[in-house]
Design a protein around this nucleic acid. Structure first.
Lengths: 191, 191
DNA sequence: TCGGAACGCTACGATACCGTATCGTAGCAT
DNA sequence: ATGCTACGATACGGTATCGTAGCGTTCCGA
């Protein structure tokens, strides 16, 4: 019924070009003309598949970030450290770092806020899972819970990457994980 | 020699308009036409004082952030907590928050990198001063030093404000300060 | 094979922005 | 009072962007 290879090809090629442009120059670099030039797909064809630039960006931002595997090391400390290292690795890769920046900060266009927030929420869900599991095991958890851990990990790593302009190392990730768990009182556990 | 009130007035009115626009819509909202419309100063006059949009933004970003007072509570913990609370307060004010975002993240235009980095360095200097003073007192200091503290404070607070979209509270600041100092091994102190 | 769908190309109209030119007006200093 | 300087208004050339129209070409599917 709808197995036209041309359609599939156009969509994937355009999507890839959008990601490339985000990596190269952020969301602002994603103009339809630039996408057309980079992908080799005619501008008219792009508009045949997406009604507007906003819809194209929404589509890409909502689907481009791969599923985050949930670590299961047996302890909250181990899981949190794994998550921190995973994020540091992601931020060290130009492609995923640019995508994370686009999702986390946007470009000031409120039209993308919904997708961005949804994608952010999905990223955070992994941490919530890990914390919830630790609670069920009876482990102690920081008083500010998963949100506190999220900010204590993503905060410093994002700051390193996007303000200081340097890719965070595994050592930095470990320090962030360390602080996330040991910096404030724990509660709810058998300690 | 150069006490023309008209010049002074034009410059201040334009500068204020630029700040207003940054608050309202980020660096991207600062177009010369918008500045002219908002300030009531003719576009030609703006160009008589600043050679280009870039020069105008450089000027404003370089001078708009007020000097940060250096806390001196007698202990590193007290000083760090004061700094964290100060930053949280700054991020809770729409005006300074927008300015901090502009300085920290920019808008992708590399032409502003120099000012932004210089302004960031100036902000960080306060933390370095506090840490250096603690070292001279013989206090223990986290192994990753002032940079680690900076990231552990600014990271979570920035994340709260610019990713989660919520103004950080004093409680959040205290937790960040707590984690910044207690999360990782200390060194150099008499303990 | 052949009809319809998808595609590419080019050219638009409509904005928005930068930075400049022109020209007349208003205010400052002396 | 008068000359110099700053200012305002308007218009302009140039570029970039969005999104659309027209038209011919290519390819998929039945």
């Amino acid at each position: 019924m709808s197995g036209d290879l041309r359609v599939q090809r156009s969509r994937t090629v355009v999507t890839t070009a959008v990601l490339d442009l985000i990596v190269a120059g952020g969301l602002g670099a994603v103009t339809i003309d630039a996408v057309s030039a980079r992908s080799g797909v005619a501008k008219t064809t792009i508009y045949r598949h997406w009604a507007s630039r906003e819809e194209l960006l929404t589509d890409v931002l909502g689907t481009a970030l791969p599923e985050q595997p949930v670590p299961d090391t047996g302890t909250l400390a181990g899981d949190v450290r794994a998550l921190a290292r995973g994020l540091a690795a992601g931020l060290s890769d130009a492609r995923s770092a640019a995508l994370l920046a686009a999702i986390a900060f946007g470009d000031g266009d409120p039209a993308l806020d919904d997708v961005r927030h949804e994608a952010t929420r999905a990223r955070h869900a992994v941490v919530r899972t890990v914390v919830e599991r630790a609670r069920r095991r009876g482990e102690g958890v920081p008083v500010d819970g998963a949100d506190g851990i999220i900010r204590s990990i993503a905060g410093p790593l994002f700051y390193r990457r996007f303000v200081e302009g340097v890719a965070p190392t595994a050592t930095l990730a470990d320090r962030a994980a360390d602080r996330a768990l040991n910096g404030t009182a724990v509660a709810g556990g058998a300690q």
